[in-house]
Design a protein around this nucleic acid. Structure first.
Length: 113
DNA sequence: GGTCTGACTAGGT
DNA sequence: AACCTAGCCAGAC
């Protein structure tokens, strides 16, 4: 059977990022079952239409808002994050240690005895 | 259908 | 800590 498109899976993961937290592209990719496809996450978000997805909560592994080839959304992204309580340091970076989303790993189904 | 591109990343200098 | 490079791989042409 055909799996859902990777974009769909990516959006599903991004929708789980709680308010006030951020996730990295690589992290989202991993959680979406697409290891090493961090770039795809960026493309998926760039292709977003009207879907309600908190795209602003996805930043790069260095804690920065990734520069777009077509600048513009970066500023909005920052505003949206700040509005949720995510702070930036003097270098425009988010303290990942403090704001990185740490989803509880779904514990493997307990093996039935 | 080969090449190029890029909201990325890990590792080396 | 900033900068470079190689690896990455789905889409667009």
């Amino acid at each position: 059977m055909k799996a859902a498109s990777s974009y769909t899976r990516i959006y599903a993961v991004v929708r789980k990022i709680p308010r006030g937290r951020v996730a990295t592209y690589g992290q989202v990719a991993e959680l979406a079952g697409l290891p090493r496809q961090a770039r795809q996450v960026g493309y998926a978000l760039a292709a977003l239409g009207r879907e309600r997805v908190p795209w602003h909560r996805v930043i790069n592994a260095r804690g920065e808002i990734s520069p777009r080839s077509d600048p513009g959304p970066e500023q909005l992204q920052r505003v949206l994050l700040e509005r949720e309580g995510v702070g930036f340091d003097a270098n425009d970076r988010v303290a990942l240690a403090r704001h990185l989303w740490q989803p509880r790993l779904r514990r493997a189904r307990a093996r039935r005895r």
